[in-house]
Design a protein around this nucleic acid. Structure first.
Lengths: 227, 227
DNA sequence: TCCCAATATTAAAAAATTGTAAACAATCTC
DNA sequence: GAGATTGTTTACAATTTTTTAATATTGGGA
């Protein structure tokens, strides 16, 4: 089955159904996958399950405020780098400053223009973007995310799904060391539990297929890709 | 943590001297190095000379508009990734969208609150640092946390995990003496119990690998890093 | 100066981490 | 349904890292 590159996921948390609907609609039209939550606690739960790329938090919500949600999420390693946008009716400088200092990446005041929100979301993603497209080239390696295909020189290398995703992750930032935990989160997902040797075995298979020394082990830390 | 590197440089382009002055003052107070330009053409010239980390562009300027400046800069490789913020009196959705789509990272409408501007600047830098990863440079030593790599001159030095973390701690504040207790807490964690000689042994290994005299013993107190 | 506690040095033991091969279950293909 | 492919686990080997323990050395105060 043809698996496309998975769309970026956005979580919106707001207690006003109208806002949820309008914003969802516009972001979906832009090609994002959208999930919603009606209050702060739900936002945290849903975030843990779906691990979204970006989170939009209403500041005033029953249960926990957006600020509180942000603070809690930021303490979890999985959400350390997630983009967070605050949404609020409070057009108040000191609140905005507080929002940005709490760890928010943007702060938008209501009434919001869905188009503006979409633009800001796009702008933040543009900045974060790691891969310049679906095809990545490193040295003589070409990684095509759409075709799930890796080419080395003129030779085609067929990798299984997990192998491919693992390689795609490592090559998304050459030379960066990916912690084993990080790899588990990003390749296997937050909720899946697999044994300790699973990563090793996959690394081994990639090494076999690509030739020995493109992936370096950093003992006690993780792995990195290097040409 | 606070680290001593060269301050980040910000270029502000606006034709209103008052704005230049107020914004400069506030950003300088925050520790940034600020350079200014009075119009679009000057902004491009100055940018090419000083290569700032972030550029704040007024949209309405004589000569070239902020949008035009942005477009021109974005075509140059040196400014492909520079953060750009637009500043404008036009509180108009479609203009804001245009700004963000032109390649701006943020769009702030006048009247601006200097504190809010500063917060947004900080938030953007915080985000960029996360993406870029932070490298520490002391003398000819380069410590790259993300790559888990230490380079001395052109030579790569391979350190084991504890060695790396210990060195990273000591170099995070050069010349500061770290108490043995402090080192234990920060490198080994609060709950781990290890013998007294353990630190010494690791220090020794680092000394061997980096060459003798970069870590100084302060008897009865702790250790400090110094070039 | 001498003494003594603090630190250096060493080597070897202990612990932790990773590599490997083989086996199994799940899934997909034909 | 047989056979291939994939993902995972297991058990063990190989390796590296970390710690300990035993001994030497150092430097500052009495």
């Amino acid at each position: 089955m043809a698996q496309e590159t998975k769309p970026r996921t956005i979580l919106i948390a707001d207690d006003e159904p109208d806002i949820l609907e309008i914003v969802s609609f516009n972001l979906q039209a832009e090609g994002y996958e959208v999930i919603t939550a009606k209050n702060g606690n739900e936002a945290i739960e849903v975030a843990k399950i779906h691990n979204p790329d970006l989170i939009i938090l209403d500041v005033m919500m029953p249960g926990k405020t957006g600020f509180e949600v942000c603070k809690i999420l930021r303490t979890l390693p999985a959400f350390e780098n997630t983009i967070i946008i605050f949404l609020t009716a409070l057009n108040d400088d000191s609140t905005e400053i507080k929002g940005l200092e709490t760890g928010g990446d943007d702060y938008i005041t209501k009434p919001i223009s869905p188009k503006v929100l979409t633009s800001r979301v796009n702008a933040l993603f543009r900045r974060i973007i790691k891969e310049t497209g679906s095809v990545l080239q490193i040295g003589d390696l070409i990684i095509d995310r759409e075709k799930y295909l890796v080419t080395s020189g003129s030779e085609e290398i067929s990798l299984a799904r997990k192998e491919f995703e693992l390689l795609a992750l490592l090559t998304s930032k050459p030379s960066k060391v990916f912690l084993r935990n990080e790899i588990l989160h990003k390749v296997w997902g937050t909720d899946v539990i697999v044994g300790d040797r699973t990563i090793d075995v996959h690394i081994r298979k990639i090494r076999q297929k690509l030739g020995g020394d493109c992936i370096t082990t950093v003992k006690g830390v993780g792995y990195k890709f290097q040409m």
